[in-house]
């Protein structure tokens, strides 16, 4: 069995998760401070990929990144790089599809943050950067981590937009999900089943991690306090 699709899926999901981790947090933090109308509009635009069919996202990305389209043509001419049909093209698709998950989850976590803690930090002379990373983020850690894990899981299973922007080339753009589809189509049922089992195994592990984050309340300070007194 050739393990390339698994390796490819894992690296794509990991890179996407890292990208949306930072962009999602930044968006959630700064958009919350904007005036109501702008916030509403940006909210709709950024959440749209969550409800759009992934094929529609893939189509829109091809319209922009394709070799004859605006950005795609410019990058091809300036750097000689084709932006579609490579293994990393998939990252564009997964990032767009997965971003709303991170953004929404983190925004929810930030909304639950007690702003007086930030004010207290400011009056004590702590820099806003310090307050963000040492007070706000630890307070919201559970939500932020849950968002990142969900984003990773969703990126791992992304099929629709991926198949449009990167297609299926064995050993190059093949991911677990496109491989399952391809094997089934050519009638290799036994191997398709193996990949399906691999997929189910990974998903189960991820859900287990999410449950641990939610149930045990391990990572919040209140949880830590309660555990020690108990």
């Amino acid at each position: 069995m050739d393990w390339y699709p698994l390796l490819n899926s894992l690296r794509i999901a990991a890179i996407s998760a890292v990208v949306v981790f930072f962009t999602g947090i930044a968006a959630a933090y700064y958009i919350a401070k904007l005036p109501r109308l702008v916030k509403g509009i940006l909210d709709v635009i950024l959440t749209l990929p969550l409800v759009l069919p992934p094929t529609v996202v893939g189509y829109l990305l091809l319209r922009v990144l394709g070799p004859k389209r605006l950005i795609g043509a410019w990058v091809l001419e300036a750097f000689g790089i084709r932006m579609v049909m490579t293994w990393w093209s998939t990252i564009f698709a997964t990032v767009v599809v997965v971003f709303p998950l991170m953004y929404r989850t983190v925004r929810g976590a930030f909304e639950a943050f007690d702003e007086t803690l930030a004010y207290a930090g400011q009056t004590l002379g702590l820099s806003n950067t310090y307050i963000f990373w040492h007070i706000r983020m630890p307070y919201c850690r559970q939500g932020v981590l849950a968002g990142a894990v969900l984003a990773f899981a969703r990126a791992l299973g992304e099929y629709g937009a991926t198949s449009m922007i990167a297609g299926y080339t064995p050993g190059k753009t093949a991911t677990v999900s496109t491989t399952v589809y391809q094997l089934w189509q050519v009638g290799n049922d036994a191997l398709a089943l193996k990949w399906v089992l691999v997929n189910i195994g990974i998903s189960a592990v991820i859900l287990l991690v999410v449950n641990m984050l939610e149930k045990k309340n391990l990572l919040t300070a209140a949880g830590r306090g309660r555990r020690q007194t108990a």
Partner: peptide, 21 residues
């Protein structure tokens, strides 16, 4: 001036201790 520059101590109603520290 920013709150950081003002050097004014503020005791909040619920004390606002950082729960993770």
């Amino acid at each position: 001036l920013t709150p950081q520059q003002r050097q004014v101590g503020y005791l909040f109603q619920q004390y606002a201790l950082f729960p993770n520290m």
